Amino acid sequence: MGFPVGYTDLFLPKILLHILTLLGFIRKFISFIFRFIGLTDFLEPDISSEPVTHFHSVSAVLIRELLPVVKFSELVDPPESCAVCLYEFDSGDDIRQLTNCRHIFHRCCLDRWMDHDQKTCPLCRTLFVPDDLQASFNERLWAASGVVDYYGDSSLVST
C-alpha cells in the first residue's frame, strides 16, 4: 500500500516555512531600526545588545566567601568526576571542597547550585555552613540584609 508519491511534497508546509522565515527577517529588520534610532528599551531582552546581569542572593555570596576555590591538582586523593555535571576533573580545574562533608565539585557547578538559593550539598544535603560558623554566618547575613540600618538601633527591636 504505502503513501502516494505526491504526499511527501505537501504545499502547505513550504508556505508555512516561507512565512516564518519572512517574519524572522521582519523581526531582525525592526530590531535593527530600533537600535539605529536608539530605542533599545522597547526591544525584548534577548534581542537587545545590553548584557543581562545575574542576581546573586546575599546568602550565596557569603557562602562563596566561606568555601575557598583551589586547583584540582592541589588535592590529595580526589574523586574522578563532579557529581553535578558528571564531567571528569582536569588538573587545572577550579574546584570547591565543602567543609562539612568534604565533597568536591567544579566551582561553576557549585556556584550555579548556590545561585538557586540552595544551602546544602547537592550530593548528601549537608549544610554548607558548619555548625561552629553558623552563628557568625547568621550575623553577617543579618548585617548584609540592611534590616538593622532600617530600624536604626538593634536594641529597639529586641524590646
Rank of each mutant, 00 (worst) to 15 (best):
A60C: 10
S48N: 09
L66T: 03
V84S: 08
E88I: 10
P78L: 02
V69P: 00
C82G: 03
S49L: 13
E74N: 07
S81C: 08
V84C: 13
Y87H: 10
S49W: 00
S59C: 06
H54T: 15
H56E: 14
P68K: 05
H54A: 12
L86S: 08
R64D: 11
D93Q: 07
I95M: 10
N100R: 13
V52A: 09
E80R: 10
F89P: 04
E65V: 10
T99Q: 15
E88L: 07
V52P: 00
C85S: 08
F55E: 12
I63S: 00
S73K: 06
D90F: 09
V70D: 09
A83S: 09
S57Q: 04
E88S: 12
V61L: 14
E50L: 13
S73L: 06
L86K: 08
E74Q: 05
V58T: 14
S48H: 02
A60W: 06
S73F: 01
S57R: 05
S49M: 08
D90C: 09
D93T: 15
F89Q: 09
V76R: 01
L86Y: 09
V52W: 02
L66R: 05
F72Y: 10
T53C: 08
H56A: 11
K71F: 00
R96G: 02
P78K: 02
V84T: 11
D94T: 14
S81V: 09
V52S: 07
H54C: 07
P51K: 07
P51H: 02
V61H: 04
I95T: 09
F72L: 01
P78V: 00
V76M: 03
S48A: 12
S57D: 10
F55G: 08
F72M: 08
R102F: 01
V84N: 06
F55N: 10
A83P: 11
D94I: 08
S48Q: 07
P79H: 02
S73G: 04
L67S: 05
L67E: 04
E88K: 13
R96H: 12
E80W: 02
L67Y: 06
H103K: 05
A83R: 04
C85T: 12
I95Y: 03
F72A: 06
V52E: 05
R102N: 13
T53A: 11
Y87E: 14
L98R: 14
P51D: 07
H56D: 11
V58Q: 06
S59Y: 12
S59E: 11
H56G: 05
D77Y: 05
E80A: 10
T99C: 07
L75K: 04
A60F: 01
D77A: 03
V69W: 00
L75W: 01
P79I: 03
D90E: 14
A83T: 13
F55V: 15
F89G: 07
Q97G: 04
I95R: 00
Y87D: 14
S81Y: 10
T99M: 12
E80P: 04
R64G: 12
P79G: 04
S59T: 13
H54D: 12
A60S: 15
L75H: 01
R96P: 13
E80G: 09
E65I: 12
H103N: 15
